Amino acid sequence: MHFAPTLPPTTRPARRAGFTLIELLVVIAIIAVLIGLLLPAVQKVRDAAARMSCQNNLKQMALALTNYEVRNGKYPGSNTFGPYNGWPVLILPDLEQEAVRNTYVATANWYDAVNEVPRNSKVKTFLCPSANGARSGRSAAPGGPASYTAAAWDYSNVAVVALALLTDLGYQDPSAVWRGVMSSQGSTVAQITDGLSNTLLLVEDANRPEYWVKGKRVSDRDPSFGGDGTATGTLVGGTWADHDKGFGIEGTSADGNTFVGPCAINCNNSFEIYAFHTGGANVAMADGSVRFLREGMAIRTLAALGTRGGGEVVPADF
């Protein structure tokens, strides 16, 4: 007797379990939390990189100005008159910008038609990555209301300190010395008696001609001093080629809206030290070193750093 072989029971592939809606929501929530944790870290890295790039810009310009001083026996003046040009034109070769310098006609004014192409040339060293690099600067021609646009920059030099105003309000001690390193006549090294490492050379003054106060852009009113020669007016001076370069340290009110006052750093970008870095602004000292001045610095300390020979006592940890 033969028996038919017993066949194994039919086997079916096991069904793969999928994600339930709740599980998907949990995964999405976890991813959202991770992104929320990572974004601040990524932003901090970007901010740090921009700050370092900005510091490098100041370092290059400070070294270029040092080379100029060695060649000419003094630092250039803050402004030039007849023809009207800015001192950045003088250091373009030291910044490896010979192409721009060779097309710039220094015997003409910066706003003349012959200089239209070079004055609109963007120079990377003159732009801080934390600011709006796509903007154009704007500055007024001397002796008239005409305003000209040109390539922007985010820096400036300290020409003077408004000692009379600061002293009257009790923010500074009386002093006969109010000039900075790059005043209208410039300075020799011998005139910087406060010490090169204790004297400001270059500072950030970013995003002009946009008007910024305490981290917010202001578009519904003009600054109380705009740099156009009037008590109130349009914010100008934000082009690297123009003759309107340096400014006077005077501080603002605590809210940043009016001059003169105790607020020293990142209060107002209308011819004051202003940057888009968290907690402070970069500056270059006359010895070529670059420092980060923190918000909250006393205007008295900043004014002391601005003069070339006031003999003030500056805190070691400024």
Rank of each mutant, 00 (worst) to 15 (best):
V100M: 04
D317H: 06
G246W: 01
G306P: 02
P8F: 11
N257C: 00
A4E: 13
T258E: 12
Y148I: 13
R119T: 14
Q185N: 14
D255K: 01
D154E: 07
R221C: 05
F3L: 13
G246P: 02
K59T: 15
P118W: 04
G77Q: 01
T10D: 09
A113D: 15
N56K: 12
V181E: 04
I91F: 09
F81L: 10
G73L: 06
T149F: 05
L293I: 15
D154G: 06
V189R: 15
A303G: 13
D220I: 05
L196W: 03
N157V: 13
S130T: 12
L201A: 07
V203I: 11
P129E: 03
A17L: 14
N56F: 02
L58H: 06
L34T: 07
S136Q: 14
F126E: 01
G227A: 07
P118K: 04
F292S: 07
L21P: 00
Q172G: 00
T11L: 14
V114H: 05
T307M: 11
A150G: 13
A134G: 10
Q191K: 08
G238P: 04
A140E: 10
G170M: 01
V313Q: 14
R16T: 13
R291D: 12
T232Q: 12
F292W: 05
V218F: 05
L90V: 00
V70I: 14
V160Q: 14
D242M: 00
P315S: 12
A41H: 09
D47E: 15
A284W: 01
S197R: 12
L202H: 03
N72K: 13
R101F: 11
T232D: 05
F276Y: 10
V236E: 01
M182C: 10
R179T: 13
Q191G: 08
N266T: 08
L302N: 02
L166D: 06
E272A: 13
T107H: 09
E204Q: 15
R46W: 12
G186I: 06
S156V: 01
I28Y: 09
D255I: 09
S219H: 00
G180V: 07
L165G: 05
S224H: 08
A164E: 15
G77R: 04
A264L: 07
L196F: 10
N102T: 09
I192F: 07
Y155R: 03
V33N: 03
P129F: 05
V33M: 09
A17W: 11
Y148E: 01
R208C: 01
P93G: 06
P223M: 04
D154A: 03
T103S: 15
E312I: 00
V45W: 06
R294M: 12
V213M: 10
R15V: 15
G143D: 02
F276M: 13
L21G: 10
T301N: 14
A49D: 12
